[in-house]
Amino acid sequence: MLGAILSLSLLGVSLGLVLGLAARKFRVESGGIEAELQALMPGSNCGQCGYPGCAGAAAALARGEAAVTCCPPGGKALAETLAARLGVSLDASAVAEELPRIAGVQEEICIGCTKCFKVCPTDAVLGAAKQIHVVIREACTGCAKCENTCPTGAIMLTPVPVTLQTWVWPRPAATPSPESVLAGAGAGA
């Protein structure tokens, strides 16, 4: 009995000692995954994810609280990058393929109050007091902050029109009703 206790204790202590030493010798600074994630985010701090800015979202992602699909401006591409980085599987079809939308100003009702360009996180709205404002399409993330502050409803989000340059072949429709009753899209969970 004593032998058993002694030998096992000895074994445990010596193994623990080895591990403890190894943990010191092979110490690795834990990587700043949060910073890495934050670098991937759009950085406009638009708040559509529900977290305080992109840094907050990155932190939530790193803690595993936020879904990789939480960032609408990032879209599918960002969701895929995040999923790959975090090693989670992403059902690509689950990402709502929402048409990108950007803001536009209706000149007739704009009163030039400058509220919209004060809230714009990317300085995409140009204008001055008492002047009609203009949205720079290339800089607009479609975060809708301006839409919510506009007192007259002059600034509104509209879907980006598809042009010859941006049109993309649709994915071929899957075989009609392929195992539609029992089938799931992919397998191998």
């Binding site: 992919g186 397998a187 191998g188």
Partner: peptide
Amino acid sequence: LRERLALARVPAAFSGAPIG
């Protein structure tokens, strides 16, 4: 085999662990 399974149209009843 599972890489190929991931691309197969496995019925929902079997998809995942069962077909594995």
